[in-house]
Nucleic acid binder design. Sequence first.
DNA 1: GTCTATAGTCGGATAGAC
DNA 2: GTCTATCCGACTATAGAC
Lengths: 234, 234
Amino acid sequence: MARKAETRTTLPITIQRGDGTRNRLIEAAIDIFAAHGFDGASTRDLAHKAGANLAAIPYHFGSKAGLYRAAAQYIADGLSAKMLPTVLEVESALENNSLERRELLELLDRLMVKKFAATVLASAEADSWSYFIVREQMRPGEGFEILYRSVMARVQRLCARLVGRLLKMPEDDPRISIRAMAMMGEILIFRTGRAGLMKRLGWSRFTEDRLEHVQSVLSENFQRILSAPVRERP
Amino acid sequence: MARKAETRTTLPITIQRGDGTRNRLIEAAIDIFAAHGFDGASTRDLAHKAGANLAAIPYHFGSKAGLYRAAAQYIADGLSAKMLPTVLEVESALENNSLERRELLELLDRLMVKKFAATVLASAEADSWSYFIVREQMRPGEGFEILYRSVMARVQRLCARLVGRLLKMPEDDPRISIRAMAMMGEILIFRTGRAGLMKRLGWSRFTEDRLEHVQSVLSENFQRILSAPVRERP
DNA sequence: GTCTATAGTCGGATAGAC
DNA sequence: GTCTATCCGACTATAGAC
């Protein structure tokens, strides 16, 4: 609802993360909604974690649901900002229709493993972001549209284009989308199923070198999956 | 809490699905908890959907949380019953240490694609079961322990053993577990990310032949991923 | 074992002073 | 814009009749 310029004088231009009640509320909301879900989060907890007053939620966002939407938009914008440079690079590289297999594989690796996997699995914010997104994927609500349109659809589509080129199949063949989906699954499972993996391997934290471990497996799997055009199974 | 024999006289031996307030409550609970999460489900809705009285929940299960635990146990038992025959088959087949690659691949396909994927993605009950399980994976609570111990750990471990044999790596190498995990991800994404896939492909239902479509892609991917022992990447 | 009625708590939203 | 105080509805659990 209301939206005004910051009144801080020490930082007149750059709007810092966490500045202003509105931003603090959104950031707190992402954490709490991610952890407890929409129904499990109380406005009192949300306000308290943000160091704000309870009444600030209806004031700034109209309602708790409005805050939820704002949080979804905030994540969508943040994810876009992280993914966009690579997405644009790969998109423009794909305009060249005579790329070699090796080059296509490199593009795929750059987009999905080096960028997407790293962003989703390990970036500082991603802990809460991912839970938020996974919840929306599972039970698509208002947030799903926001997130889907702004980033996910684009990454999904780009991944599918790469797969199609590599397997020499028309872009609209459903098998292409299914394959791209399966590859997304290989990445996202390390978020959604992390509890099971850590339990099995006796890990207590998902450290940087463990991410690299996972990334190298993903790279190899993708290379193998896309190693040759599809032949029909016997 | 209370647990007594059924009083119906028409079906004295077999306890039918849905018989008795207690069972109806559990079955309703799985649907509602899956759809709305623990906090989003109200005892009123739970009781109403089960055709039971509100007070039946504390009576039979002590509390709403008790009903939740019972639901987790019910799913664990049901999943076990579905998976166990195949799990035992594969486990006993693996006692033979000189299986050929082709035979190992067949076992993997039988366990993970024909059985696990089909169960998770398409069995009648699985719609609610999966959402329930995914929630627990994401935010491990009391239900996680129940589900993990009774089925998931066993399937995960068995899949890892197959992968280890195929890639000729020691069973306790973390790369084995990571690979097995990635494969699970390829399957589970068609549950957790189904909304995105259906949107992309313009599907409105996940039919039997679409499942087969997915299964054939999974089979092929797994075969490729495990096609040759791992060599270190440059 | 199942019901009604109700206790006791906590939720989101609002009113109105500042 | 931010605060306190408060309303009112919804929630879980219990008491007690049958």
